[in-house]
């Protein structure tokens, strides 16, 4: 899903594999880490100890069993 955001990177990668500049690499790595941490937060934490999107319990209830089994505090 992250691949869409950087059009043309695949074609360029074939010509010169290391064509991405250091700045762009930092953005890609930072963006990926942010996305991954957001998923970690949504699966494990949101609508429990804190809630980003209001006081519903939709996310919490949806991933509820996973939250318990993955070791996060719940209930």
């Amino acid at each position: 899903m992250a691949s869409i955001s950087v059009p043309g990177s695949t074609t360029r990668a074939r010509v010169t594999p290391e064509a991405l500049s250091k700045g762009r690499v930092a953005v890609i790595l930072g963006g990926t880490a942010f996305l991954a941490l957001a998923i970690y937060y949504l699966v494990g934490v949101d609508e429990g100890m804190v809630s980003l999107f209001g006081k519903t319990m939709v996310v919490h209830e949806w991933v509820h069993d996973a939250r318990h089994f993955l070791g996060f505090p719940c209930h």
Binding site: Y40, L42, W62, V63, D65, A66, L70
Partner: peptide, 11 residues
């Protein structure tokens, strides 16, 4: 529910 949670975490 548990599928999406575990798969999202693993990805």
């Amino acid at each position: 529910g548990v599928a999406s949670g575990i798969i999202a975490f693993s990805v």
